[in-house]
Structure formats: C-alpha cells, structure tokens
C-alpha cells in the first residue's frame, strides 16, 4: 500500500513508474507533490503541463489536471492555459533538453513576460529517453551517444539564462538537497510571476554510464559534495568554485505579471461599455 501522500496525489494505478532504477526523476516528482501538499492547494486548481522526455512522463502519474504536450512546447501550452484560466496554479514539468533546446525560445519568452507559471526543470544533463544524446546542459568535455569523443559545446547555466530572460524567481536544488527543493517549489508557486526552478537530477543509465560516474548512489554523492549554498558560494574565489555549482534561491524580483496586465487591457475596454 502506498503512503498517504502518494495515495492522495498520484494516479497509483499507473505506478510503478517507467523510470530506470536510481533515476532521480521520482525524487523530484515527489518533492513537487510534497510542496503542493505543504501549501494546502486544492488539487482541482492545479494544472501540470509537461513536454516530452523522461521527466515529462511525470504528468501522467500525477492526479491533478494534467497535460502531456509536444516536445519543447509545454510552456506554450501552459501560457494558453494560464491566460484562459488565470486562477489556476500552472506548473510546468520539463527536462533540460525539452526546456532549453527545442523549447528554449518558449522558455525565454515566458520568462520575459513574467507569466505566473512555475517551471521545474529536471536537469539530468542528457536526453535519457532517446538513448543519451548530449543536451545543452551536458558539461563541456562529457560524453553522450552523439558526442563519443566529448562534448565541445559550452553548457548552459539554466538559472542564469532564466534570470537574464526576466524570471522573477530563480532557484536551483538537487535530488540530494530534497528539503531545499521542496521549499523552492513552494516559494516558486507562491511567487506571482515566472518561477524557474532547476532540479539537478541523475541519469545513471545513460549519462552516468557513458561518463563513468558510477551508480545512482555515487551520482547523488557527487551532487551532495559539489553543491554549494549561494551564501557560501559568493565568498569563494574563482579557483575554489572550480567544479562546484551553486544551489539556493539565486534571484528574486518583483515586476508586473502578464495575465494581470492582460486583464487590465480587457478591463479598460469593458469600462467604456
């Protein structure tokens, strides 16, 4: 029998899920659900939208209003849903490839508009579903099935990208720092504007194996040992930052939200009637 949390928020008839043994996607999915539970939101007022990829399969397991859309377009669908029903809490579940390669354009424009959508990117540094091709977040030098001699691209810092594009809440956490992730999802949902949460997760089957990163546990230990909280990170020298990455709430700001601005235009016309 599953836990109360799982029984309440998951379509348990679809479990166990299709993710590989040790894949971190389940940890992120549970963290999202836990955050929703902590906020005490009404299930019917939540809409989870996902694209295509391993992570995007999450929407099928969740017992909310859910839409499993096309590759890279989760944010485009989510924008439409939010504009039609601004009272819904719209949450986008996407992967690094889905969000920043084919969906990169939607990502920057959703951030630019500051539309009230919470986007959680499951970043496993690879395209897992299709067999481990390198993605925009595969670190330079690391291998993928399409980069057998090492990736020569510079990888995206997704949080910096979201911040520069205009997101008003930007944070990063890992599947090891799960409680931090839960808190960030809560704060992201509470933020009236575009929230971007990067959840660093693991793909032991493809990315891990291809790059000799060890088993699922080894990959989690790596995340544990190299994640530095933002307060501590700011005090490190450039040399000390080598190989480390920052976690925590990276950026917060306040500016007009898109659906509210849109409503303002509608109201300005209805007043005249």
């Amino acid at each position: 029998m599953p836990s109360q949390l799982v029984k309440e928020y998951f379509r348990t008839e679809n479990l166990p899920h299709i993710w590989c043994p040790g894949c971190g996607n389940g940890i992120v999915t549970r963290a999202i659900v836990k955050a929703i539970d902590n906020l005490g939101l009404n299930k019917d007022e939540i809409c989870v939208v996902s694209g295509i990829g391993c992570s995007s399969r999450a929407s099928g397991y969740l017992d909310f209003n859910t839409v499993h859309t096309t590759h890279g377009r989760a944010l485009a669908f989510a924008t439409g849903i939010k504009l039609a029903k601004p009272n819904l809490n719209v949450i986008v579940i996407t992967g690094d490839g889905d969000a920043s390669a084919i969906g990169g354009n939607h990502l920057i424009h959703a951030a630019r508009r500051n539309i009230d959508i919470t986007t959680i990117v499951f970043n496993n540094n690879t395209y897992g579903m299709t067999g481990g091709q390198y993605s925009p977040t595969t670190p330079t030098g690391d291998k993928g099935t399409t980069a057998p001699f090492g990736n020569i691209d510079t990888n995206f810092d997704l949080c910096e990208l979201a911040k520069a594009a205009g997101a008003t809440y930007v944070s990063r956490s890992t599947i090891f720092t799960t409680n931090m992730l839960i808190k960030q999802v809560e704060n992201g949902i509470k933020n009236k504007g575009f929230s971007f949460i990067e959840a660093l997760t693991t793909c032991p089957t493809y990315y891990g194996r291809k790059n000799r990163k060890g088993e699922a546990v080894d990959m989690m230990v790596y995340l544990k040992e190299n994640a530095i909280n933002i307060a501590a990170y700011d005090k490190l020298s450039e040399e000390q930052r080598e190989g480390k990455f920052v976690v925590g709430e990276i950026y917060k700001s306040n500016r007009p939200e898109y659906t509210e601005e849109y409503q303002r235009i509608i109201d300005s016309f209805s007043k005249g009637v």
Partner: peptide
Amino acid sequence: ELRCPDFAIYLGGK
C-alpha cells in the same frame, strides 16, 4: 522516504 525515487519506502503511523 524523501529520496526514494520509486515511492517504495515510507514512514507509517502518522
């Protein structure tokens, strides 16, 4: 429970 990717272990009695 926090880190099980498969929701396969949890605390009961709550």
